[in-house]
C-alpha cells in the first residue's frame, strides 16, 4: 500500500547506541529520558492531525463560538484537479467546524459538497457511504460519529487519489484541511487571546512536512497558481511560528497567521 500524504509516518531506525539508552531498562520500566538529538537528524515528516484534534484541545480551554467561524459553503467550481483537491480539503475541514458548532444543516450541505468534489476527482464511490453516514449521524446528533466519518471520508478520498497516482492532489487535500483548521483556530484564539490557547499553534514540524511535500510535487501541481500561493503563504506562517520559539505566540503573531490563512482560503474558496 502506498503512503498517504497525511499519514507519512516517520519510522526511524534508531542507532544501536540510542537503543541501548532507551531500552537499557526492562520494557516494563522504560528509560525516563532519551537523547532525541540522535533521532532528529533523520526526522522528516509528521502525521498531519485532523482539525478535530486541535479543536478538541481548544474546547477544553473555554467555550469557543464555533458558529462564528463556520464558513458558508463555497460556490466555487474549480476545473483543475489540484484546485479541486484544495477546495475539497477545506470543505472537509469545514465539516469538523460544523460538528463543533453542532450545525446539522451545514453538515448536510458539506456532505453534498464533498460528494460533488469527489465526483470531479473521479472518486465519488469512495466517499458516498461516508457522506451518507455523516448526514444520518448529524440528523441524530451523533457528533462523534460525524467526526469519525469525516476522517474516513478524507482517508477514502486521499487513498483513492493515491491509487490513481494522484499523490500531489492527495497531499493538497491534507494541506488545505490543515489550513482551514488553522484559520478557524486562529480566529477563535483572537476572539479571546490567552497564551495557553496560542500554544496550540506550535506546529513547526507540520509546516516543515508541508514544505517537503510541495518540493516533491509534480509540475502540474507545483506550478499551479493557487498551489504556488499556498506554498508561499505557508512559508510565511512557518516563519511566524518559528519566531515564537517554544513560547506561545503573541496576539499579534496569531493575528498575522489568521490574516495569511484567511487570504489563502479566500483564493481557494472563491
Amino acid at each position: 500500500m502506498n503512503k498517504r500524504p497525511w499519514q507519512i509516518h516517520t519510522t526511524l531506525p534508531l542507532a544501536a547506541a540510542l537503543l541501548a539508552g532507551v531500552f537499557a531498562v526492562s520494557a516494563q520500566q522504560p528509560a525516563q529520558k532519551i537523547d532525541v538529538s540522535k533521532l532528529s537528524y533523520a526526522q522528516s515528516e509528521v502525521v498531519i492531525p485532523n482539525p478535530s484534534e486541535v479543536f478538541a484541545a481548544l474546547d477544553k480551554m473555554g467555550s469557543p463560538n464555533w458558529s462564528k467561524v463556520l464558513n458558508p459553503p463555497s460556490k466555487n467550481k474549480p476545473i483543475h484537479p489540484p484546485e479541486i483537491a484544495m477546495l475539497l480539503g477545506t470543505v472537509i475541514a469545514n465539516g469538523f467546524v460544523a460538528v463543533e458548532a453542532k450545525d446539522k444543516g451545514a453538515v448536510d450541505e458539506i456532505g453534498r459538497k464533498v460528494i460533488e468534489l469527489a465526483d470531479s476527482l473521479g472518486v465519488r464511490e469512495e466517499v458516498i457511504r461516508h457522506s451518507n453516514a455523516i448526514t444520518n449521524a448529524a440528523k441524530d446528533g451523533e457528533w462523534n460519529t460525524v467526526r469519525t466519518e469525516l476522517d474516513k471520508a478524507k482517508s477514502s478520498v486521499t487513498g483513492a487519489m493515491e491509487k490513481l497516482r494522484s499523490r500531489d492532489n492527495s497531499q493538497l487535500i491534507s494541506i488545505t484541511g490543515w489550513l482551514r483548521g488553522t484559520q478557524a483556530l486562529t480566529s477563535l484564539i483572537m476572539a479571546d487571546y490567552k497564551p495557553e490557547r496560542a500554544e496550540l499553534l506550535h506546529q513547526p514540524d507540520i509546516l516543515a512536512t508541508f514544505e517537503k511535500q510541495f518540493e516533491t510535487m509534480g509540475k502540474g501541481a507545483k506550478e499551479n497558481k493557487r498551489v504556488v500561493e499556498l506554498r508561499e503563504g505557508l512559508k510565511k506562517v512557518k516563519t511566524i511560528i518559528l519566531s515564537g520559539g517554544t513560547e506561545p505566540l503573541s496576539e499579534k503573531s496569531v493575528g498575522e497567521i489568521n490574516a495569511i490563512t484567511t487570504e489563502l482560503l479566500k483564493a481557494i474558496e472563491h
Binding site: 516517520t10 509528521v46 502525521v47 498531519i48 492531525p49 484541545a57 496550540l200
Partner: peptide, 22 residues
C-alpha cells in the same frame, strides 16, 4: 484513521514523530 505498520527484528525499535496538543 492514521495508522502505522511494518515489521522489525527482535530487539529493534523504530521512532515515529507525531504532533500532540496540550
Amino acid at each position: 484513521e492514521d495508522t502505522w505498520g511494518g515489521d522489525l527484528p527482535e530487539k529493534e525499535a523504530k521512532a515515529i514523530s507525531h504532533q500532540l496538543f496540550k
